[in-house]
Design a protein around this nucleic acid. Sequence first.
DNA 1: CAGTATCCATCTGGATACTG
DNA 2: CAGTATCCAGATGGATACTG
Lengths: 120, 120
Amino acid sequence: MDLNVHDEMTCQVRDVLDRVGDKWTLNVVHQLRHGTRRFTDLKRGIDGISQRMLTVTLRALERDGLVARTVHPVVPPRVDYALTPMGQTLLKTAWELIEWAQTHADDIAGARRRYDSTAG
Amino acid sequence: MDLNVHDEMTCQVRDVLDRVGDKWTLNVVHQLRHGTRRFTDLKRGIDGISQRMLTVTLRALERDGLVARTVHPVVPPRVDYALTPMGQTLLKTAWELIEWAQTHADDIAGARRRYDSTAG
DNA sequence: CAGTATCCATCTGGATACTG
DNA sequence: CAGTATCCAGATGGATACTG
């Protein structure tokens, strides 16, 4: 596989990396790991996220078929979010990268300290 | 593990995701998969990258201990870049996410078309 | 409760010019 | 060859106010 920006394959990969690499997506996906959650419930579970960014992130995940959105026609409104099967496979795969990050966090922090103290 | 932005673990994970999720890092890492490469060689291998962004990306990878930079004191200058052992484990792990992206690219594209045609 | 709308600061990265 | 320096456009996301 080639990662060049101008072939077709790469643009698809960039789409996915742009989604996964943004500020809130993995956090939202992680919140949904055990099943259905409501909007406000998610907002409480993700420290620091704004109402706007939760909406934006959920809409993008829904658009990509990674999260299912269910509106219950009641008053007050109730909307449920859950991972689709494809969303669950994303969680599983992305989690390995997160575990890599955890495993190597100290090494990276140490490398940065050395680099910054050497170069100034 | 918790992904909340305010605990320590998450900030480390965000560091890594910010690195991997940026526009050029994985492309550069991928170019180095078979061994040492020179600056101009890398630039030729990555379609669309500017000189500035190749430098910025390589410096960040070097700072994190993922890439080793070797300067040969010759004229004209010769600088070699290669993955460190840690850089090689990153390539391996990140590649699984890229394979996920390839596997599900059509599903995601289809989901987007359906979403966009339904909602307008 | 679950959003939408608007405005704005910051960050990312591209273009261009210059250099040891 | 392998960079550095500067400038600038566009994307990202936070704050705030409003709503069915």
